[in-house]
């Protein structure tokens, strides 16, 4: 199975060829806020255009759906999926189990991916989702690599591993930032929450880790374990982040595929330039999420 490196894009203006050049596929839409300006989940015309542009770039297009839609929002979910299917979407990602149930019934044959908020922790849970047409899962971030190995072996499902990016740590119904500014401009600001040495990034209805998850040092191990589908989390990140972080991992993956010995040090230095708060990857190794496991901890 070939490697797939994918990322996330919330708006049409982010479909920028140079920024997406390192990626094989893109998840379209902001799943955490329907009011995010330009959200492809709301603007169906822009969504169709985005899918066409990705096709033109030779990339697969996936649709991400709202993570926790209320009942009155379900018709809009149905409509955006119908628009995406008509435009030739390759698969649809759902975080909400009800949405998976609904799409399985209403769009038979549609390839479904279970997102990071679907709370996939056990192989039995994943097998239940498989019955509904789910072909790919993103295991919950709390799982260790050993647990994910077990999940993969026991289900035969495709497994997405995040290689880099700020980990979504929690979703909320109400936008936290509305107390500090007006919608929709406020979440375009770069807000941080800090308590002593602990930093979080807040983008309104989702709290992200301040540190970047970083698996650059462990790429060879991940490939050796049989993983081939990798995500760089870039939702709401600047274009340069999406482009440069993607390039670094693409370069490393190509080097490993060619059988080269890839030294992580230079990659880490380049990655560190994109986030002053450092790296983490502890969950993958059975530790606290904010821990970092690796030989070369960047300063």
């Amino acid at each position: 199975m070939a490697v797939e490196l994918h990322t996330q894009v919330a708006t049409l203006e982010e479909i920028e060829p140079s920024c997406l050049e390192p990626y094989d596929a893109v998840y379209l839409g902001h799943p955490y806020c329907g009011r995010y300006p330009g959200n492809l989940l709301v603007d169906h015309g822009a969504l169709r255009e985005a899918i066409q542009r990705l096709r033109g770039l030779g990339k697969r297009a996936y649709l991400s759906t709202p993570a926790a839609p209320a009942t009155p929002e379900l018709p809009a979910v149905r409509e955006v999926v119908a628009a995406a299917v008509a435009a030739g979407i390759d698969a649809v990602e759902a975080h909400n189990l009800g949405v998976i149930h609904m799409l399985a019934r209403e769009f038979p044959g549609l390839e479904l991916h279970a997102g990071c908020f679907a709370n996939v922790y056990t192989h039995l849970g994943a097998l239940e989702l498989k019955r509904y047409g789910v072909t790919r899962i993103t295991p919950n971030f709390e799982l260790s690599l050993d647990e994910i190995d077990y999940l993969k072996e026991a289900t035969g499902l495709e497994v997405t591993l995040w290689l880099h990016g700020k980990i979504p740590l929690g979703i909320t119904r109400d936008c936290f930032l509305l107390a500090y500014g007006e919608c929709p401009a406020v979440c375009r600001e770069d807000f941080w929450l800090r308590h002593r040495d602990w930093v979080l990034k807040c983008i309104g209805t989702v709290v992200l880790s301040g540190q970047d998850l970083c698996m650059a040092e462990h790429l060879g191990d991940l490939l050796g374990r049989g993983y081939r589908i990798f995500c760089i989390g870039t939702l709401t990140e600047a274009p340069a982040y999406r482009r440069e972080v993607g390039r670094i991992y693409r370069e490393a993956l190509e080097g490993l595929a060619a059988g080269a010995k890839v030294a992580a040090g230079p990659f880490l230095g380049r990655l560190a330039a994109h986030n002053p708060h450092g790296f983490c990857n502890g969950y993958f190794f059975g530790k606290s999420g904010r821990d970092y496991v690796g030989a070369a901890v960047p300063g």
């Binding site: 929690g170 602990w198 709290v207 606290s288 904010r290």
Partner: peptide, 18 residues
């Protein structure tokens, strides 16, 4: 909770002991 219950791992991100 601040988040939806069951949709938050801020606690284990900070400190988790297996």
């Amino acid at each position: 909770c601040f988040t939806y219950i069951g949709q938050c791992w801020m606690s284990s991100f900070t400190r988790q002991v297996r």
